[in-house]
Nucleic acid binder design. Structure first.
Length: 498
RNA sequence: GGUCGCGUGGCCGAGUGGCUAGGCAGAGGUCUGCAAAACCUCGUACAGCGGUUCGAAUCCGCUCGCGACCUCCA
């Protein structure tokens, strides 16, 4: 029934059967955000995708150490200014205030999206010593050089001597080395344009600075991930993830750093998520084609007609595969909203079901069992959430039919019903990480609201029994205005909020 | 300019050689006091042209269109 877990490895460009280094345990490193301004939706998609991967691995029973860093130093802008420093200057804050502010914001949003926190969330500034040690190791290996107090990686030498550079990102080394484009600002110290900084000597106005054997300065951008993944997961670990746009140069350079410092490849499986698009173009902080999570929640944006809840957005993400681009539009969000509600409704109906007396497994029973198995097979096939979701929707249609009496409950064994209830719940809440927003938000008041609603429904039922349509419709319309929908069914009336 | 990828019905989005993806929207029907919800049925989609094949959305070639990366980005 169950296929083994297959993952698409960016390094080999193939789906491979996943085998962890240590049985039952998985080390996973995902490149986190650079915290110099508000997190945007594109980041959220990536981290939601990895959250689902993380959750599924946990569901499969693995003990997963999930490390996702916070980059809070060393990430330079085009003009050579540190991202954090720029943020500090603009907001008139201490660099660490900037970092804290946007880290908090990032955490808040990820919590709203119901993403599980990583096991370890290391910060670059908290690992300066580890980074200095790694720079030294790379220098010792002979693949770095010193220039005016800065240390650069000798990409040319590495590419020539080791058959590694360019493999991950599919770069042709000769092309890289040719480097026809003129974009060499601030690069006069480098021997070759493809070289990159491991340690930068700080200019006098640069306030984020640390002592090192080479100069008072700061670490290069790619270094923190190499240093921190090695520290917490070892020289080689199972999964390294991140957005597609990090493949080059970030991940390629990470590999180069690890190779020279540790003598081995850092990760066995590289997983890359694809971009979130809007209007058919990459969502990007830099060119303004963007909508913030808050704007999408509130609908306060020219790109949407109304607000969409975090779980609708999460559902929207689930509907595409993590390696495909996903194009955000108002229409697509509306469809996702409907679909999300349908799925939640089906689950609610399912969880209320009880097996029929003397039920025996029939054809329908087998169909249900097959669909459940297929859903897991889809997840095992490189975390194919859209296909798994499709199977869940097929189950939803069976569930609703059973509820309405269009399909015979007698054909579903108690055992299968119980398993379906468990699997459906597991999928929606544990693996997909969705929340039922209708019940989640009420929580404590849920019971009192339930009581009131039951009263209102009873009164309306009485009116209907008396053919007092005016009263019954008034109740229905008034509730509708309050965003409560009544659903008349065979066994009485249900209601939903929103 | 170089590298890689994509182009699926009204919209989103799976699918890699023959078998129903799925969601949303639309049409018809069942149910209902009416409606909503739910259920059933339906549309014969694969950018264009050519090739390989008994058979292609799926493989190959060309053309057109779009995107990503090559420079900071999840």
């Amino acid at each position: 029934m169950k296929t083994p877990l297959q993952v698409y490895n960016s390094l080999t460009r193939e789906k491979e059967t996943f085998t962890p280094l240590v049985e039952g345990r998985i080390g996973m490193y995902v490149c986190g955000p650079t915290v110099y301004n508000d997190v945007h939706l594109g980041n959220c998609r990536t981290f939601m995708s990895f959250d689902i991967i993380y959750r599924y691995l946990l569901y499969l029973g693995y003990k997963v150490r999930y490390v996702r860093n916070i980059t809070d130093v060393g990430h330079l802008l085009d003009d050579g200014e540190d991202r954090i420093l720029k943020g500090a200057r603009l907001d008139q804050l201490e660099p660490m205030e900037v970092v804290q502010k946007y880290t908090n914001g990032f955490h808040d949003i990820m919590r709203v999206f119901n993403a599980l926190p990583p096991s370890i969330e290391p910060r670059a500034t908290g690992h300066i010593i580890d980074q200095i040690e790694m720079v030294q190791a790379i220098l010792d290996s002979g693949y770095a050089y010193l220039a005016n107090g800065s240390v650069y990686f000798d990409t040319l030498k590495f590419a020539k001597e080791k058959d590694v550079y360019g493999k991950l990102s599919g770069r042709v080394v000769e092309d890289l080395l040719a480097e026809s484009r003129e974009n060499l600002k601030n690069q006069d110290e480098k021997r070759h344009p493809a070289d990159f900084a491991l340690w930068m000597k700080a200019s006098p106005e640069h306030i984020m600075r640390w002592n090192s054997p080479w100069s008072v300065g700061f670490p290069g951008w790619h270094l923190e991930c190499s240093a921190m993944s090695t520290k917490y997961l070892g020289k080689t670990f199972d999964i390294h993830g991140g957005g597609n746009d990090l493949k080059f140069p970030h991940h390629e350079n990470e590999v180069a750093q690890n190779f020279t410092a540790c003598g081995c490849a850092p990760a066995n499986y590289w997983l890359h998520t694809n971009m979130l698009l809007m209007n058919g173009r990459k969502m990007s902080k830099s060119d303004g084609n963007t909508i913030s999570p808050e704007e999408l929640f509130t609908g306060n944006s020219p790109h949407v007609s109304k607000g969409y809840s975090p779980m609708v957005i999460r559902f929207f993400v689930l509907q595409s595969h993590y390696r495909s681009t996903l194009d955000l539009s108002d229409e697509a969000m509306q469809a996702a909203e409907k679909g999300y509600r349908r799925l939640m409704e089906a689950n609610k109906n399912l969880q209320k079901m009880t097996p029929a007396a003397g039920a025996k497994a029939g054809e329908l029973d087998q169909e249900i069992v097959d669909l459940m198995d297929q859903a897991f097979d889809e997840m095992n096939d490189d975390f194919n959430t859209p296909r798994a979701l499709a199977r869940l929707f097929e189950l939803a249609s069976r569930i609703n039919s059973l509820k309405d009496g269009h399909l015979p409950m007698q054909e579903v064994s108690a055992e299968t019903l119980e398993r379906l209830q468990k699997v459906f719940h597991n999928f929606i809440f544990d693996i997909f990480g969705l929340l039922d927003e209708n019940t989640a938000e009420s929580n404590g008041e849920a019971s009192s609201l339930d009581t009131v609603m039951q009263l209102v429904i009873d009164i309306r039922q009485q009116a209907r029994a008396n053919k007092d349509w005016a009263t019954s419709d008034m109740i229905r319309d008034a509730l509708a205005a309050a965003k409560i929908q009544l659903k008349d069914g065979k066994d009485g009336t249900d209601w939903t909020k929103g």
